[in-house]
Structures are given as C-alpha cells and as structure tokens.
Amino acid sequence: MHKLETQNITMKFGSETIIRDISISVDQGELVCLLGVSGSGKTTLFNCISGIYTPVSGRVMLDGEDITGTTGRISYMLQKDLLLPYKTIEDNVALPLIIRGMPRDEARARASEYFEEFGLEGTQKMYPKQLSGGMRQRAALLRTYLFSDNVALLDEPFSALDTITKGRIHRWYLDVMEKINLTTVFITHDINEAILLSDRIYIMTGRPGEIKSEVRIKTPRSDRHGYDLTDEFMDYKRQIMGILGEEKRETE
C-alpha cells in the first residue's frame, strides 16, 4: 500500500478543466517531485490533495483511507513562507499543534525539540522579520513537518531564494530529510532542483494538467552531494528536457 495516492483526480473551475485524470503515488519516506511549466495545474493538484478543494472526480488516499476533501491531514508549504509576522518563531512553528488543540506550552515544548535539528537553535523568541530568507524557509518546513501525518506537500518552497542560499538549503534539505524521514511531494519548475532532491519525478504537461511521464533517479539521496556536476545528472537533465520539449512541440 502506498503512503499517499491520488486516483484519477480531475478538477474543473466552471467549464474549464484544470487537471485531468491524475494518478500519482508516494511511498513512505519517498521524495517525489512534480515538475512542469507554470500553469500546468500543479498547485491545483496540491489544493486537492490537501483538501482545500474537493476534486470533481477521483480520490485522495492516505494510508489506504479515503481523505478526499478533508483538511488537516496533509501539510502544505508554499514559496512564501507564510510565517505570521506577529508571532515568534516558536509560536509560528507550534501553530499546527495549537490548532489541533494542544495547550500552548506543550506545543512549544514539542516544537523546540526540533529546533536544533532544523538549524534554528536560538531563534525561538525571534520574530520572522529578524530571520534571513533561508532561515525562514527552514522554520516554515519545521512547521510543515510538525503538522503532518508524515506527509508534506511543498509548493516551490525554495524558488524565492537566491542561487547561493538555494544551493545551501538543498544540501541542508537532503540532510534533514534523511533524519526525519518525511514523505514528501515537491512542486518545482527547476529541473536541477527536481533531479537533485527527489527519488522520482512526475513530469506534468499543461492545460489541462496531466502526468506525461515518470523518471526515477537511481542514485540514492544520501549520495547526492555534488551530484549536479556528474554526467549521470546531465543525462537525467537531457532526458527530462527532451520530454518537456516534446510536450512543447505538441502544444504548438
């Protein structure tokens, strides 16, 4: 049984079909990437999985349980960190626990257990504005992790960061994922990021969004340091660019 599975999800707004017949699956601890151009409906798919939208047809299964249209089960993280500016980092991070009804002190205590692991030690009492972009994304990821049933959806989480910070946070991300074993679906339009960070890549085509192809990255994630300079990496990149190129020709 897969940890998370979407079965033939279709979503429409009015008469326009945004995504059609999407079936993806993610196993426990797996890091799966959705790669596609802007407007291919990746975010709509995420909103369906997280329960903000109820799809027109199809089902979302978590551990074999139908959770279609149910919020509060799968956590979500966007390009904007969405840390609330008026709450301290520890309160921001503990927010999902507080929403679930955990008393504030207990939630803070539980959140603070992870601060060191996420490289956030000493920021507990600070406000988001006092942190750099990279640190804020770490805090947002910790919040996502604390809220999840061990499944997280990340919607272009690092795309707003500058290249150097992005490189650093990629390495950090692979390390922290190794430790916390979080099952993750990751949206990006950055091919390098997709190859570097995932076990499998679903390539999405646009309007309506459909899964075009699936690429499995064979090198284990633990061996990915400096991976983006290898020939194997370039082969994957060529393969994916080829698939995206085909799609472009088809739509033209």
Partner: peptide
C-alpha cells in the same frame, strides 16, 4: 489569503483563523 488557506489546510476553524490571523 494564502495564510488563511494554509490555516484551513491545517484544519483550523473560522474562530481559529480569526484568532490567529485576522485579529492580528
């Protein structure tokens, strides 16, 4: 709106959205 959606995805009630976001 994104923050409100995030709260909703966490399963927050309208009151919680008010208390944690709108009020501030």
């Amino acid at each position: 709106k994104d923050a409100i959606n995030l709260m909703r995805s966490m399963g927050a009630s309208r009151w919680q959205i008010f208390r944690h976001i709108k009020f501030f």
